[in-house]
Design a protein around this nucleic acid. Structure first.
Length: 358
DNA sequence: AATACGTGGGG
DNA sequence: TCCCCAAGTAT
């Protein structure tokens, strides 16, 4: 790309941003901690979703020291509903590393930043450019889409990441890296959207190859995926003679790691829901239960599979619950359950229990 | 390099 | 209804 074009692209984008850039709360701050929190929350998550979480989080954990000193349960509770919970666990661990190894200061070296858990190349670039105005490129979903259209990229972005990183770096304005990166993301989020891009309002219209070839709605190229597997799960709401409910904390690794849940598991072929629940509870907790009435059936979709949750009331018969396949087990009341972080599908179960007890 | 990892909203 | 997607990272 000729240097004269690069200069025009920088200038037109920065002019556009000065007039139409979004007023977002983290842009009002130069605190690396606040900017870091926003960057992690924004991974694979829309601005609209993040806004309420961001404000609450800074109220609960106003500094990196406060976050480092917090209990993981409180951290996960503040993250409840945002998804990709490894982000919260990594944020917590990274805060402790910053306090212990960086004197409480967010590292300014990109290699040091990327050594922190949960911070990859794009997040590091986003933080260092936004907080310190360092000339470090980014390549998030917005930038991939904008650049793929700008050059009419004839490949799915995933196949040519090096080329896109190179382009992001070439275009980055060395004088205004903070505003340039933010402007690039705003362009993707508000003008160069996935569906019905507003090309007539775009500052890059003149240089956009996709627009000039009228293929903007076809780009970026996407790859089709096979249909998601579907799992049927039996879930137990086990109550004891005191009316308390049994919950367990999932292991740290993997899906929903560290969150609490109602115990249960996958229905085997030719197995009834009741038999599944009774078996799973014996295997996971080592106790005998009686499976009772159905509370609800709910559908939920994760990133890589779908589930049908068959939730039944159960009565504890005998045995002391043990954490055989989880990190912890606890009897709680419906009031106490508020303090525990649960996945979204389980929040629906709690709401149903609350409605049933009212 | 390909896959695991959440959730809510839009077409 | 169903698929796709949105400020990606870790392994």
């Amino acid at each position: 790309m000729p240097n004269s074009v690069v200069l025009q692209l920088r200038r037109s984008l920065l002019d556009w941003y000065a007039e139409f850039g979004r007023d977002l709360p983290w842009r009002r701050s130069r605190d690396p901690y606040a900017i870091w929190i926003s960057e992690i929350m924004l991974q694979q998550t829309q601005v609209k979703t993040v806004l309420p979480y961001y404000d609450r989080w800074l109220g609960t954990f106003p500094t990196v020291q406060a976050l480092a000193a917090a209990d993981q349960q409180a951290v996960l509770k503040a993250w409840q509903g945002l998804g990709y919970y490894a982000r919260a666990r990594n944020l917590h661990r990274a805060a402790q590393a910053i306090v212990q190894q960086h004197q409480g200061q967010f590292p300014r070296q990109i290699t040091a930043a990327m050594a922190l858990p949960g911070i990859g190349q794009t997040t590091a670039g986003g933080i260092l450019s936004a907080a310190f105005n360092q000339p470090v490129p980014i390549l998030d979903g917005n930038v991939k889409r904008v650049l793929a259209r700008l050059v009419a990229l004839p490949h799915p972005p995933r196949k040519v990441l090096n080329q896109l990183w190179q382009l992001s770096e070439t275009l980055l304005d060395p004088q205004y890296p903070r505003d340039f990166n933010q402007a690039l993301m705003d362009l993707g989020a508000t003008i160069c959207t996935r569906h019905n891009p507003a090309c007539l309002l775009c500052p890059w219209q003149q240089h956009c190859q996709a627009y000039n070839q009228n293929v903007q709605s076809e780009l970026p190229m996407s790859e089709s995926r096979p249909p998601l597997p579907h799992k049927f799960i039996g879930v137990a709401v086990i109550r004891n003679d005191q009316g308390e409910i049994l919950i367990d904390r999932r292991r740290q690794e993997g899906l929903l790691g560290g969150l609490w849940e109602f115990p249960g598991g996958k229905v085997e072929p030719n197995e009834t829901i009741a038999a599944c629940i009774k078996r799973e509870i014996q295997e996971e907790l080592g106790i005998e239960i009686e499976v009772g009435d159905r509370l609800m059936v709910l559908e939920h979709a994760y990133t890589h599979f779908k589930v049908t949750l068959n939730v039944h009331y159960c009565r504890h018969l005998s045995g002391e619950p043990q954490p055989l396949e989880c990190d912890e087990v606890r009897w709680v009341t419906l009031d106490e359950i508020e303090a525990y972080p649960f996945p979204a599908a389980n929040v629906q179960i709690i709401e149903a229990l609350r409605a049933a007890s009212a």
